[in-house]
Simulated assay, not measured.
Amino acid sequence: MYNIKTTKLFDKRFANLGKYFLLSNDEIKEATEAIKYSIVELQQNGVLPDEYDDHVLEDEPWTGFNEYHVLDDLLVIYYRVDKKKNLRFTTITTHRELRKGNLD
């Protein structure tokens, strides 16, 4: 079982998906359910189903962080330390924001 931690930025964006990402109510519901499910899956099993496309990022400043897809352009960024069984959910973002590298 992995230990889960979240940043203030992750919590803020998760609580306000519609505001930050201009999602419809249906998209907010789908994204919320997918994020909650993914966190439980990672906590219990350490891996996600293939459809999440979980992978390690290679470009600065995100080198070593993991990213997975919730909606087509809604991404969850987290950092994993397998040795200590820790997962730190950093933010929720888009491809465009991720490429900029600097999140508010």
Rank of each mutant, 00 (worst) to 15 (best):
L74E: 00
W62I: 03
E51T: 11
I77E: 04
V47K: 11
V76C: 08
P49I: 06
P61D: 04
L74D: 08
Y52M: 01
V76M: 06
F65E: 00
P49M: 07
Y79C: 00
D53L: 15
W62M: 08
E58Y: 09
Y78K: 11
Y79M: 04
L57S: 07
E51G: 09
G46L: 06
V70C: 12
E67M: 10
Y52P: 02
Y79T: 01
D82R: 09
V81Q: 09
G46I: 01
F65H: 03
D72A: 11
L87H: 06
G46T: 03
V76H: 00
Y52L: 04
L71H: 05
D53A: 14
N66H: 15
P61A: 12
K84W: 09
L71K: 14
L57A: 01
N66C: 13
L87F: 13
L74K: 08
V70Y: 04
L71T: 05
K84S: 10
V56W: 03
L75N: 08
T63A: 08
Y68V: 09
T63E: 11
Y79L: 11
V70K: 05
Y52T: 01
Y79N: 07
Y79G: 05
D59Q: 12
E67C: 13
D54T: 07
N66Q: 12
G64V: 12
Y78Q: 06
D72H: 15
G64R: 13
Y68N: 00
D53Q: 14
R80T: 13
R80V: 13
L48G: 05
E67G: 03
I77T: 03
D50Y: 05
D82T: 13
K85Y: 10
L48P: 09
D82E: 14
E58T: 13
L87Q: 09
L75W: 08
H55S: 08
G46F: 10
I77G: 01
D73P: 07
P49H: 06
N86F: 12
G64H: 12
D73R: 03
N66F: 15
T63S: 11
H55D: 04
L57Y: 05
P49A: 08
L48T: 03
E67Y: 05
K83F: 07
D53N: 15
V76G: 05
Y68A: 10
T63F: 03
E58C: 11
R88F: 12
V81F: 06
R88E: 12
L87D: 02
P61W: 09
P61H: 06
E60T: 06
D50C: 00
K84N: 11
L57D: 02
E58D: 10
F89G: 01
D54M: 09
V47R: 12
W62K: 02
V70E: 11
V70S: 04
Y79S: 07
D59T: 11
L48W: 00
L57E: 10
G64D: 01
D82K: 08
F89N: 01
G64T: 11
R80L: 07
D59V: 01
V56S: 13
P61I: 06
D54P: 08
V56Q: 01
W62A: 00
Y52G: 04
R88T: 15
W62L: 00
P61C: 10
F65M: 10
N86E: 12
D82A: 12
D82G: 14
D54I: 03
D54W: 07
V56E: 07
